[in-house]
Every structure is written in C-alpha cells, then in structure tokens.
Design a protein around this nucleic acid. Structure first.
Length: 377
DNA sequence: AATCCTTTGAAGGGA
DNA sequence: TCCCTTCAAAGGATT
C-alpha cells in the first residue's frame, strides 16, 4: 500500500499516520507511534475523524489546542467582527477589486448543451478557480441567472417574460449598496438558491418576485416534468402544486462545501458524500480566519437577503419536512472491532472505491467512518 | 422511493 | 443562558 509509507523518509514506524492535506498548514498533526495498537478501533474511528488530536505530539497538540481555543470563540467573535466590518464596508466585500470580474465572468450558459449548469454536471465539472478569483465563483452558476440583468444569451423578451432577473436586481439593489452595474455582486450564493428552480414557476415570492429559495415540495419531479417539455401550466393542471418550501439559507460551512466539493471529489477517489463531507470538515478547520471570514460574510448576507425576502419565514417552517427514521447508530461503535489486520480484511480498505490515495484516507462504507492511513501496507 | 450518513452553523424551543 | 433538535447540500448506500 504505497500511500501508507511515511513521507519524507521520516519513517516513524507508525501503523497509522495523519497526513496533512496539501492545503493544510504545517501545524498538521502526526500520530504517535503504535498509536493504533494501543487503542481500540472504535475509539480510533472517532478520534481520527476528530483531527487525531489525542495522538498529536505534545507541541502539535498544544498548537492545536490553542488554535481550537481561538476557534471556539471565533463564531461569536467573528460575528462581532463582521458586524464591525460591515459597518465600515457594508457590501464592501463585493465592491473590493479583490475578486476581479466577479461575478460576471465564468458564467456558464445553462441553455447550451455543454453548459455546466445542469443538475448533474454542476456537481463534478465545476472548474476550480485560481487563487485570485472569488472563492465562490464556482457557485455563480446558481446565482447569476437570478440576479444579473437579462442574460446576454437570452432574448430580451424572454427575460421580461420570466420577470426574474431585472426585477430581482432592482429589488436587491435596495438592500445592499451596489457598485454601478454590479447587481450580481451581492449575489447570494445559493443554498436556498438551487438552479433547478430557474425554470420553475413555483419559485414565486408573494411580492411577485420569483425566488429560488422557494422550492417545490417535489422539486425533482417538477423539474423532470419540465425536462419532458411540459409547459408549466400543464404541469400545474396535471398536479396541483403543494405549498412551496422556502429553504434555509446556507451557512458558511455549507457555502464552503458547495464550492469545494468538486475539488475534493476530483482529488480523491472517494465518492460518498459522507466521506467527502468529513474531509471538507477537516479542511474547513484548516482554513485561516481570513479564509473562513469570506464564507461567514457571504452567509451573513445570504441570511440578510433571505430575511428581507421572506420576513415571515421561520426555520421552524421546514421542521418535519424530512421524515427521519429512528436513529440506531453508534450502538456498536464501542464493540470490539478486532485487530487492525482483521479490520482491514473485514472492511477491505485497499479497495479503490473506498480508499483515497492522495489524501491517504479510507472510508468504511459499511460503518461510514473515515480512516486515516490506519494500517501498514 | 425514502431515508441514512457526514460535516458545520444557524435557528428555534424547552428547561 | 444553556442545551438539544432540526435543517441546509451532496450523492452513494441502505432500507
């Protein structure tokens, strides 16, 4: 198992080793020698996912604790910070030239055959932006159709018919101070902004403003009906639409996930979203304050916009929308998993489908745990 | 077909 | 105020 060999010739002789993601700092931890042999697998499963804090060297652990100490209060501090920032530069984040061309560049045409704006292609084919670009550039396909003026690829009357773009833009410009012609720059990024709603008539705000936060209860089906070429009125006649659902605005981490998912998928052989999300969670913690701040700020603006558009909406409104089975997990997490050898054989972590070489991460599909170079090769 | 899994953050409600 | 629960996205796996 080549990915298990220690890097840099520093053979620690460890059975398991936490390897830093390439975008993580040098503070990334290393697991102590023979750590695995001293712990039961169940403990390891959870601890490894938790950044292997227990296994760090004392110095690394101290650094990590300090960082976490900072992070713990960061949410609150950051909120204060952002409030302060916004007082000074309300909307300034989007005015700054730090993201040249944002958001009008890289707009895929959803109506072209090769457009990346499609339910499937969007997930994987997002082109990773350069460092100089806005971190949420990849999210633009979700947003600009709604907030930019009439898309150049569309006939003018089409834009007018939908009444989406211009109206929305005008509406939004009152909420955020916008640079001239920069309507899209306050683009919310899309949690409650699924592009599947672009064609949906149900995304209609009570004010008459269509908005993607309003999701048909069975949005997938509706979308498929449109794909079959049915006119919205026919759809409406065939199936009386239920009360549309206004989705929650995405928080900072959700925005980060939305942007980075494609990158992680491209780098890893892992496919399960649960595993990807674990990796993204680790990377999120590895971000600097400044990097996270961009997402917190965007999330704040999303909430602000959401609140403006749906003042009576409550997160409680969507409670119960997802029917959950009674959870039974973690029942066997404390049971003896056996030796590493047995465990590896049991879970077959060498299989290509659940082992990521570049990240040196294994994903136990059955247990749905993320492993980090657990076993010797 | 519906739900689970997994992550973090926001929000709501009860104690 | 604190704690707990739910939802937001994603898509393969599971029920």
């Amino acid at each position: 198992m080549p990915q298990l060999s220690s890097g840099g010739g520093d053979d620690l002789g460890a059975n398991d080793e936490m390897i830093a993601f390439k975008d993580e700092g040098e503070q990334e931890e290393k697991i102590q020698e023979n750590a695995f042999t001293e712990r039961d697998l169940a403990d390891l499963k959870s601890s490894l996912v938790n950044e292997s804090e227990i296994n760090q060297s004392p110095n690394a652990a101290a650094v990590r604790r300090a960082q976490q100490g900072e992070q713990r209060g960061f949410a609150e501090k950051h909120r204060e910070h952002l409030d302060g920032v916004s007082k000074h530069q309300d909307g300034g984040m989007y005015k700054t030239p730090a993201y040249p061309g944002y958001p009008f560049l890289m707009l895929p045409d959803p109506y072209l055959p090769n457009s990346s704006v499609s339910p499937s292609s969007n997930k994987v084919s997002v082109v990773q932006q350069s460092h100089g670009m806005h971190p949420l550039t990849s999210l633009l396909p979700y947003s600009n159709e709604h907030f930019s003026p009439s898309p150049p690829h569309l006939p003018t009357d089409m834009s007018q018919k939908t009444g989406v773009h211009r109206h929305q833009s005008q509406d939004l410009s009152g909420y955020y101070s916008l640079p001239p012609g920069g309507v899209g720059q306050i683009t919310p990024s899309m949690g409650w902004f699924p592009h599947s709603l672009m064609l949906g008539p149900s995304g209609m705000h009570p004010t008459g403003i269509p908005h993607p936060a309003i999701v048909p209860p069975s949005g997938k089906q509706d979308h498929e009906q449109y794909d079959r070429g049915m006119k919205p009125q026919e759809v409406k006649r065939e199936k009386e639409p239920k009360k549309p659902v206004i989705k929650k605005p995405l928080n900072a981490f959700m925005l980060y996930m939305k942007e980075m998912r494609a990158k992680v998928i491209a780098e890893c052989t892992l496919k399960e979203s649960a595993a990807i999300n674990q990796i993204l969670g680790r990377r999120w913690h590895a971000l600097t304050r400044e990097e996270q701040a961009k997402y917190y700020e965007l999330a704040r603006k999303e909430r602000q916009l959401h609140m403006q558009l749906y003042p009576t909406w409550s997160a409680r409104d969507n409670y119960g929308k997802k029917k959950r089975r009674k959870r039974e997990k973690l029942q066997d997490s404390n049971t003896d998993p056996g030796s590493p050898k047995k465990c590896r054989a049991r879970f077959g972590l060498n299989q290509q489908t659940d082992w990521c070489g570049p990240c040196r991460l294994g994903f136990d599909i059955r247990k749905r745990h993320l492993y980090v170079s657990l076993f010797p090769g």
